[in-house]
Design a protein around this nucleic acid. Structure first.
Lengths: 220, 220
DNA sequence: GAATAATTCAAACGTTCATTTGAATCATAC
DNA sequence: GTATGATTCAAATGAACGTTTGAATTATTC
């Protein structure tokens, strides 16, 4: 079955890319984990890099589409008013975490992959795939700015960068969070809500007065 | 000159690890960039992985030491009172950004490296080096919790994770931020202050009421 | 300046990598 | 049931990898 082979490769690649990253994962690792022949990857996908693109397309493209759809729904509902910041944060983060529940098996591999993609992928792969993601960022940045008109456009972009960073890092390392007394938390819902609280507050943070900046610098 | 060779290797490795990541950078890339013989890396450092450790030690270990020193100074000054959240955020972020000014040349490579380290490095390298960083995280988490007693300990840890994520992502990608009208911002001071505002507000975000969580979930 | 140690060097080591090849196997349609 | 196309397979290709080697070179010590 051709479909089965392709899907097994995609699953194995997703899992291994998530755990060890793209450069450190070999096609032999992938095909062995998938239980298929080594040549199958190049037969079905053309190259290792094309496989990565396919892995990303399969899981992340729908997430970005949902993000944009939710954003448009929010803007339509808000009419002339700006969409509340927290609603925007939720529209940005929810589609990612909802894919979680659909798979269910423990800590989802593809979330770690998402985290890695934002930090690890080389510039050319990034530009090849991430154009779609950049569109999402631009649209959300504009929407955030509408609700935070006192901020510079560039300041909004930074805050969106910070938001993405929190999200990506949580994807990668959220599974290995350990409390001081040795307990591990695996509940995605709780981390998700905590991230939303953190991000919403961060996005809406007050602007620092320049004079205050100077006086506070290098606090000790 | 032995010292010179070692330093040139460290500089080249720092730059290339930052640009392309650890697995994607070969010793041949490094030695060519450094203008030294291929065997010099194994002679002076023992292995590629040991070279990475050395690169990290040279730049990041002092940062973590400064962080802990600033934290202790803050706690001493505060006495029985908890240290203000913003002061803790600054004590955590300032040492990293200050290394910036010391080097000056454009966007510092080692900052990108720092960003990558938090997302890319394999588990064993991470555990080998990051133990020191984990200590820093634990100490700061405890200090944050003292000023945010209404939060669970685990919630504080999450927020510190978010903070680290914002920081790491900014290190890696902050240099490629572009405004909607095509302008690029390279001023580290501004990004730094924006990050502090974002993180301070995020760390001190209110806790969501459980009932409110349920009603808001899946907002559209 | 001879002896000793430290460093550099070109070359090779064995391994692993992504990719290709061509025959074998499978499914499908006539 | 034979022909056709799609897929799988074992094997090989050539390149790149980290590392090692032993001689050549440089620096240090007496």
């Amino acid at each position: 079955m051709a479909t089965d082979t392709k899907a097994r490769i995609l699953d194995a690649a997703e899992s291994l890319f998530a755990d060890h990253g793209f450069p450190a994962t070999s096609l032999r690792d992938i095909t062995q984990e998938a239980g298929v022949n080594l040549a199958a990857v190049n037969y079905h996908f053309g190259s290792k890099e094309a496989l990565l693109i396919s892995v990303l397309e399969r899981k992340i493209a729908p997430v970005n589409r949902t993000r944009l759809a939710q954003l448009e729904a929010l803007e339509t509902a808000a009419g002339a008013d700006p969409v509340p910041t927290e609603d925007l944060v939720r529209a940005f983060l929810t589609p990612l975490f909802e894919t979680w529940g659909k798979h269910g098996q423990g800590l989802p591999k593809f979330m770690k992959l998402v985290g890695r993609i934002h930090a690890e992928v080389d510039q050319d792969v990034r530009t090849k795939f991430i154009k779609q993601f950049d569109t999402v960022l631009q649209r959300f940045s504009a929407a955030f700015h509408r609700g935070l008109p006192h901020l510079d456009a560039i300041e909004v972009q930074w805050r969106v960068l910070f938001l993405v960073g929190s999200m990506a890092h949580t994807m990668t390392w959220g599974g290995s969070i350990v409390t001081m007394d040795g307990q591990v938390c695996h509940d995605p819902e709780e981390i998700f809500e905590a991230l939303i609280q953190f991000s919403t507050a961060g996005m809406g943070a007050p602007v620092l007065q320049p004079v205050a900046v100077a006086s506070r610098r290098g606090a000790r």
